[in-house]
Each structure stands twice: as C-alpha cells, then as structure tokens.
Simulated scan of single mutants.
Amino acid sequence: MAWIFGLSAECGAEQAIAEQFAHHFENVSWVLSNGSQTQCHADIFQDIEENWWCRICPSTISEVGIDTPETAYLMTELGILLYQRLRSAPTFRYALVGVEVDEFRTYRELLEESPAPAFPGLVLSETLWQRIGASTAFRPFSSGYVWKPYEGEVYKPLLVSSDLKKKLNELLVLQ
C-alpha cells in the first residue's frame, strides 16, 4: 500500500478554480538539501460532496510513508517548500501538507467538527476560519488565509520496526 506525501487543497465547487490551483504547482521543481531534485505533479478530483480538490505530489520522495529519520527530514523540507509556494497560490478554501492528506475532511465535516480542527499545518481561508469559530490557535499565513503552523514530519520507529515492536510487547507483558 502506498503512503503518499503531498499537499491537498479543497478549492470549492468550481472545477476551473481547482485547475488554476493545479497549474500554479504543476512542474515546479526544487533541489533538496541532499542534492536530489524533485518536481511537483498536480491532479484534481471531486469528493463525495462534489467539491474540487487539488493534490500536489512531489517526485522522488518515499511512497511508503516515513520509514527513516532522513525521509522525515526530506518530507519536512518539501513541506516547507510546498507551504512557501502555497502562499502565492490561487484561491482555495483549505489545505494541508503531509502523508495521506487527500480529502482529510470534507467541507461539511470541517464545518460540523467541534471543536474546530487545529492540526499542525492546516491552512484556512479567513472566511472559513471565521465561520468555524476563529480559533486563536491559528496565525496569519498570507493575505486572506490563516494557519496552525506546520510542525514537520515525524519518524516513529515503533511504526516501522518489527524488532522494536517485539521488544516493546515483551516489556508490556512484564508489567
């Protein structure tokens, strides 16, 4: 199973807005700190509420999730670059960078969730932010947008190492 890292943005009911958003990221490339080059690929799709999303996936990054500290570092570096580019993107309602962030919340779910979600990296239009309660956990991101600042990606060895899981299970049995 693939665990894709990228940026997902919900753009509302108009396909043309999602297409403009995708165009802003399509084929953008960066050279990362390890010397590798990555290029963004964008695609759009509709969710079950018929709102349009844009998914931005950088190339040459792990598709198995965060399996090493180095992968977490590179994904965090890419996350920062994606957020920098997002600041000048065409309009969208909300966006998030991370592993498996496609359709992380539908628009209706976001409106109905109480308290309003404030997970790290979530960018909201100011209109949406005010509509869901204007949480003080958010700070200015760019003109017309606020965010809960990004905290980077995290490597969790217990999620990827069967040896460590076994050792932890042995420890838990001894209680």
Rank of each mutant, 00 (worst) to 15 (best):
A118Q: 07
K148E: 09
K167W: 05
A2V: 12
V146C: 03
V64A: 15
H23V: 09
K167F: 06
M75G: 00
R139T: 15
E151G: 08
E109K: 06
T91V: 10
I44L: 08
T68P: 02
L164F: 10
F5S: 00
A9I: 01
E153M: 06
L96E: 00
T91C: 05
T127D: 09
A42T: 14
P117I: 08
L86R: 01
E113G: 00
E112M: 10
S125P: 02
E70T: 13
V97M: 02
A13M: 15
N51Q: 11
G98V: 04
L128Y: 00
Y155M: 06
E70V: 15
G65L: 00
F92Q: 00
E70S: 15
W53M: 03
I132E: 02
T127Q: 11
C40R: 03
P157Q: 11
A42D: 05
P115S: 07
S142D: 14
S88I: 09
R108L: 13
E77Y: 15
W52Q: 02
Y94A: 05
I4G: 06
I4A: 12
P149I: 05
S62D: 05
L110C: 07
E113W: 15
L32G: 02
I4T: 12
L159I: 06
G6I: 04
S33V: 09
M1Y: 12
C11K: 01
K148W: 08
S8R: 00
G98E: 01
I66P: 02
S161C: 08
A2F: 14
F21A: 03
A9V: 01
Y94S: 04
L78W: 01
Y155N: 01
S161Y: 11
M75T: 01
S33E: 11
S114W: 13
Q37H: 09
M75L: 14
L86T: 04
V31R: 10
M1K: 14
L82I: 12
S125M: 08
A118M: 04
G79F: 03
E153A: 02
G35N: 07
